[in-house]
């Protein structure tokens, strides 16, 4: 089944925190254009794995390779500039800026790179970037709130805005860390709809999720993590039928 182009390859990654073996022997291949979910019980190492991929944590050994480039050892901003964006478990947004500016900033990062001493223009004259940001806010259904301070948004809206901030960069790989954590059923469903909508854009996604409803409605492929190891790997149907997974995880939660 791995006939697609592998865009993200986690090769033999180990991560130790003192005596704790948080990640062991992780091998993961994510195909281009697919949605790959990583599930597992609390403390299985899901967030650690995501932090290793995005450069927030350095692995004890092993490598993360994105489209032929080794990510290990690079800084978060360099990894982003390669085309990887991330949605956090607790939305990381610019709370003191307007919603529109929140979405314009990542668009400027894509256009201007990691640093530009851009003092001679005014924000008003950035009409192309502004139009693009407004278009993106329309896509996620937040255009009516564009002049609000981001910090005063509801949790669901913060998440949607953060997603817009990532999507406007047209990343090749989008990492989502529990995108529906702490959301109401209604907000969860809107988020699923939104994620399904962007699925058609051919972007590769790695999603960490607790909620089985979310995982089975979105994922093309699922890896199950338990105690720092991948215990199963496959399509949603294969994983659902795997007795090891039932025992470790699905038994109680589903």
């Amino acid at each position: 089944m791995s006939n697609g182009n592998i865009v993200l390859h986690v090769a033999d990654v180990h991560k130790r925190f003192g005596g704790l073996h948080a990640l062991a022997d992780i091998d993961l291949a994510v195909e281009e254009g697919k949605t790959h979910a990583i599930i597992g019980p609390n403390g299985a190492g899901k967030s650690t794995l995501l932090n290793v991929i995005i450069g927030k944590l350095a692995p004890t050994s092993g490598q993360v390779i994105f489209d032929g480039t080794i990510l290990t050892g690079r800084k978060p901003f360099q990894i982003n500039q390669l085309g990887i964006a991330r949605v956090f478990q607790t939305p990381e947004i610019f709370a003191d800026l307007s919603v529109l500016h929140n979405v314009m900033i990542p668009a400027l990062a894509r256009r201007d790179g990691m640093f530009k001493l851009n003092m001679l223009r005014t924000l008003e004259s950035e009409t192309a970037i502004r139009a693009e940001a407004e278009h993106m806010l329309e896509d996620v259904g937040m255009i009516a709130r564009k002049d609000m301070m981001a910090g005063s948004l509801s949790r669901g809206d913060k998440r949607r805005m953060e997603l817009a901030m990532c999507l406007i960069q047209h990343p090749r790989l989008l990492l989502l860390d529990e995108p529906t954590a702490g959301m109401s059923r209604h907000d969860t469903n809107t988020t699923i709809e939104l994620l399904k909508k962007i699925k058609s854009r051919g972007m590769t996604k790695v999603i960490i999720e607790h909620d089985m409803h979310v995982v089975f409605s979105l994922a093309d492929k699922i890896s199950v993590l338990a105690q720092g190891r991948i215990i199963a790997d496959g399509t949603p149907d294969q994983v659902r039928g795997n007795p090891k997974v039932q025992e470790a995880y699905l038994g109680g939660a589903h």
Binding site: F77, N80, Q81, E92, I105, F115
Partner: peptide, 9 residues
């Protein structure tokens, strides 16, 4: 943090 994960040095 968001600045760094948005691609800014």
């Amino acid at each position: 943090t968001r600045m760094q994960f948005t691609g800014f040095n």
